[in-house]
Design a protein around this nucleic acid. Structure first.
Lengths: 244, 244
DNA sequence: TTTTATTTGTCCGTATGTATG
DNA sequence: ACATACATACGGACAAATAAA
């Protein structure tokens, strides 16, 4: 790195690294070379490189992890939690191509699910009344964004077939005569992902996920769906804008 | 454990364990004896104990961690994200005793903080304009619930002294003439805690925390505060109930 | 479980160029 | 011309966190 240009060396190193990231030479989520390697590449002291990296980290372009390295931050999609939960619309609003993988669909007795008590209570199910469980993976531009388990009362006429035939839940519900559905309540926690979830989300196993439990109802306010969804925290942030 | 009472043995073991937990014989967050130890204590096979543990896990009374053990779940406080952020009121509504530790209060140039860009933008600061940074720990019944960094424009007359003199932010703001303040927007993500955060929150290193970035404004809609807060996910859940 | 290597974080210090008074 | 303050850049040593053997 040439000197005496009137601009600090670390500033120009930072600019070069910004360019490398913008050009895609280092992919989002990818790792930068270690500080020592960058120092020798730019022929400067390690401290000078560190000053440049601090600058990028301050702008959230990279995140520096003690003992591990520096990583290019992935673009985070802000997901606004509003009255109507619609995955595809949300992704398209961010100018990305949405896609919903249907992983599985089955009818099951909620007693065989760990969330048994909540499911029965929220959906108002009688003992032994079965539910439909849909597993779904949400993707934007080939990057997995969510894993969701949708629980519907199995008594809804024709829903099983409709869910099989349509790409989106909104479309399937429309077919059986439910033109609109609303978010009643969301409960947000976070946890570590299971190995299976890591594989499906293409996630490292030390990256926590946001966990949402959503209660959705019809426009007539009857319980319709309980949805458990997880989101990789490095790719998704939840936005809440209270209005009342 | 006596047999032939007409009630399954695992049911009575589960009932006994529920009592142990309810009575506080095992503290929340504490570890249950290994399955083998429980089996010998109740003089049953390990599989019978496992059936009982599954029952407790289904009710979220314990969480079973592969290769680690079973742990008594801590009571989770539901924190509703509504228009007025008030820590003390929230905790009191759950019949627990709130307490706010002031960890530090200082005036600082936001350029020295990693969230420099966001702070300037949200609070509408001129370059070099200082801010007040208040670090706070929220506790309920001696259990740490939150760690928050509150950023105020330092230009607010008398705020430094008011924050020092009052236990709550609401009271400090009231003293300088700000009778009400509102949540404009919250951005929710999650991450792993730092070692320092673990110590302050009395948290294990592998437990993720919810991370909230809150923008709060005065009743007149002028930017007042940027608040970064973290919550241990095993103790706090965030509730959102959309209304529009 | 323990050890070793890698990588980042935090000190210590030294030297130089530049702006200010 | 000189003193001072400040930002920049370099060098080395060790601590702390992580990953792999």
């Amino acid at each position: 790195m040439a000197r005496a240009t009137g601009i600090a060396v670390w500033t120009r190193i930072a600019a070069q690294l910004r360019e490398d990231i913008a050009s895609g030479a280092i992919v989002p989520g990818g790792r930068l070379p270690p500080e020592a390697a960058l120092a020798s590449r730019f022929a400067v002291n390690r401290h000078t490189v560190r000053r440049a990296l601090e600058d990028l980290a301050r702008d959230r372009l990279i995140r520096i992890e003690h003992g591990r390295g520096s990583f290019v931050a992935e673009p985070v999609l802000d997901y606004q939690i509003n009255l109507r939960p619609r995955f595809s619309e949300w992704v398209r609003r961010h100018n990305r191509e949405p896609f919903g993988d249907k992983l599985s669909l089955r009818m099951i007795d909620p007693a065989d699910l760990p969330e048994c008590t909540i499911i029965r209570e929220v959906l108002g199910l009688a003992a032994g009344e079965p539910v439909l469980e849909l597993l779904r993976r949400g993707t934007a531009d080939a990057r997995p964004l969510s894993l969701s388990r949708h629980i519907f009362p199995a008594r809804l006429e024709g829903l099983h077939a409709a869910l099989l035939n349509h790409a989106t839940i909104t479309a399937a519900l429309a077919q059986i005569g439910i033109a609109d559905y609303l978010r009643l309540r969301s409960r947000i926690t976070c946890r570590m992902p299971t190995p299976r979830e890591c594989a499906l989300l293409e996630l490292e196993r030390d990256a926590p996920v946001l966990h949402c439990e959503n209660v959705n109802v019809t426009a007539a306010n009857t319980p319709l769906e309980l949805c458990f969804a997880i989101y990789p925290s490095h790719r998704v942030a939840l936005i809440v804008e209270p209005t009342a």
